[in-house]
């Protein structure tokens, strides 16, 4: 089997909040092949961003306790990496696009300088060569007049343009894995559609693996071949996108699907998930979704379902899955 680009086994991340341990990520295992595109879905607090940030060692480790049997990116264990190891990891191997480009960009440096930073440091490019490369990257992400834009500061750009700059930065060292964490949430609907198409086109052309983190399943329908759903810190379903949208197996996935905005379903027929997510400080032995689940039984309230294979291509953590197991 080819080397996985991301290989996580039994990852748990715990924060201490005023002495109370809050388990943000609970026993997550996820393997991604090179070039694979995964949509990672969950509500805020489901642990989706924390899981991805721990793979890049972006968490504040004074506050976060990370435990994992394996946490490898492109074959290298990231757990033990020191400053130099992390520098070699972030950018050339894996890069991260954040939700809010306004806070991720340095307001005092030109966008050209920031895009070129990795190229100067990792590739030893001269300032002039890095600037030329930054112009080419901006053109690639659809920024008009890139020669002029490289000399501008972040505040001179619109939100959509700033997010394009972030994407150019993330792509500058041709990473093997790109993690896009709700990159379009802060953008307008029409701009969002453009950014999704842009990233999709670049991914198809360059073939890097990608994780797109979001709370909106509708957004992923076009992007991802595989969908991983998280709830209360755990993966509850992992399935090929075409199967998951056509026949979700976990009742939570079904609820998320039914909750997405859509123009083709009458409002009266749109059914929300009742209740709210559990307190992350609690650690029940039951299924965390049971209090909100229309299929919950006594067993669900007494025992936690493990994430197990459900047919050949799917994993589900549910005693009463909605979809039949398929080969």
């Amino acid at each position: 089997m080819t080397q996985a680009v991301l290989d996580i086994e039994n990852l748990s991340v715990t924060f201490r909040r005023g002495g109370v341990p809050v388990r943000a990520v609970r026993d997550v295992s996820l393997r991604m092949a090179p070039g694979e595109v995964v949509g990672l879905v969950g509500e805020s607090g489901s642990g989706k961003s924390v899981a991805m940030m721990s793979a890049m060692r972006l968490l504040d480790e004074k506050r976060a306790e990370i435990a994992a049997k394996r946490l490898d990116v492109d074959g290298r264990p990231v757990g033990g990496l020191g400053r130099r190891g992390l520098e070699a990891l972030r950018g050339p191997v894996v890069s991260y696009i954040f939700q809010d480009p306004a806070t991720a960009l340095n307001p005092l440096l030109t966008v050209g300088w920031q895009i070129g930073e990795g190229l100067r440091r990792h590739r030893g490019l001269s300032r002039e060569a890095a600037r030329r490369e930054a112009v080419a990257l901006l053109a690639k992400v659809g920024v008009p007049a890139p020669e002029r834009r490289v000399r501008q500061f972040p505040h001179q750009l619109s939100g959509g343009m700033r997010q394009r700059v972030m994407i150019a930065m993330a792509l500058s060292l041709a990473p093997k894995l790109l993690i896009a964490d709700e990159p379009t949430t802060a953008l307008d609907v029409t701009v969002q559609a453009e950014i999704v198409r842009l990233v999709q086109g670049i991914q198809a052309a360059e073939g890097m693996a990608m994780v797109w983190v979001t709370h909106d399943l509708a957004l992923l329908a076009r992007l991802a071949r595989r969908i991983v759903v998280m709830y209360a810190g755990r993966i509850v379903e992992d399935a090929p996108a075409d199967r998951l949208y056509a026949a979700p197996a976990h009742p939570y996935t079904a609820g998320l699907l039914a909750s997405t905005s859509r123009l083709d379903v009458a409002f009266a027929d749109q059914k929300p998930i009742p209740g709210s997510p559990p307190d992350p400080a609690l650690d029940p032995v039951s299924c965390a979704f049971a209090p909100r689940c229309f299929r919950a039984s006594e067993r669900c309230r007494a025992e936690r379902p493990e994430l197990l294979a459900h047919g050949g291509r799917r994993r589900v953590a549910c005693f009463h899955p909605l979809a039949e197991a398929e080969p």
């Binding site: 559609a193 075409d242 949208y245 123009l263």
Partner: peptide, 12 residues
């Protein structure tokens, strides 16, 4: 354009 930009949870 607003209607066309709204994604639908249907890969097909």
């Amino acid at each position: 354009a607003l209607i066309a930009a709204a994604p639908s949870p249907d890969p097909v």
